[in-house]
């Protein structure tokens, strides 16, 4: 425990699912903490439970057992409205599989971030354009999402997640569809966002991305371990 209150704190968290073949346990006894300003890279093999972990952090699901504290609030005690309220304002998510509205343009997709948030349209529009600029996609703003390449969609997804400047940015495999160059530039983008004060939790199975973060968590056999940061960058 550090002196600063953490954004996210999990203790004794377990998460399982009921399947037709009986219950499966994906996460058991997860203890983790994310402090404001962290840029956490979460690695782990496919199917290890990274997305499951991110869903808990995004308040998209609740733990089977244990406690998840978001900003000190126990998520399982929060009402549906409170959970929605936090998702609305404090959390931005980049999805592993984009989740675009295919018939709307790139900019409209980013603008959709504000659908359930009461902000003036002009302001939201400006923020959407700014977010598209940040991910270097202003050239495709008026293109329909279904006509974008995978990498472009990924960047629209990032723009949408950051358009509202969330307190916690969750990114699930954000470079999975990108070539090396684009991946590098996206990671640079995440670093800039992190510098500007956004806390980031990024899940990937690509170990080489670890160097971009300030912390490394490893998802293994249903629990989360703290990994070492090898590269030059560490928490300054």
């Amino acid at each position: 425990m550090t002196g600063t209150p953490s954004i996210l704190q999990m203790s004794g968290v377990r998460k399982g699912f009921d399947t037709p073949h009986g219950p499966v346990h994906i996460l058991h006894d997860v203890n983790a903490e994310i402090a404001p300003g962290d840029f956490v890279i979460l690695t782990g093999p496919s199917g290890s439970g990274k997305t499951t972990f991110l869903n808990l952090a995004a308040l998209l699901s609740l733990p089977t057992a244990g406690t998840v504290l978001f900003d000190g609030m126990k998520t399982s005690d929060l009402s549906e409205t409170d959970l929605s309220g936090i998702r609305k304002r404090a959390v931005g998510i980049v999805f592993q599989n984009f989740h675009m509205l295919p018939h709307r343009t790139a900019e409209q997709n980013v603008f959709f971030r504000f659908r359930y948030v009461d902000v003036p349209v002009a302001e939201a529009r400006e923020a959407s354009r700014e977010a598209l600029r940040t991910v270097g996609l202003d050239y495709a703003a008026t293109r329909k999402a279904r006509l974008l390449s995978g990498g472009e969609m990924q960047r629209v997804g990032i723009a949408r997640a950051i358009a509202l400047r969330p307190r916690l940015l969750l990114a699930d495999e954000p470079t999975g569809n990108l070539d090396f160059e684009s991946a590098q530039s996206i990671m640079q983008c995440f670093r800039r966002l992190n510098h500007s004060g956004i806390t980031i939790l990024l899940a990937t199975h690509n170990e080489s991305l670890v160097q971009h973060g300030t912390r490394h968590l490893i998802c293994r056999k249903g629990s989360i371990e703290e990994g070492a940061i090898h590269a030059s960058r560490s928490r300054e």
Binding site: A58, L60, E80, T81, S84, G85, R87, K88, R89, V91, I93, F95, H99, L101, F112, R113, R115, Y116, V117
Partner: peptide, 16 residues
Amino acid sequence: IKEIGLRRSLGATKRD
């Protein structure tokens, strides 16, 4: 369904 998930992740309540 995916759109519903997206909306929920963006802050839509069950009611919305």
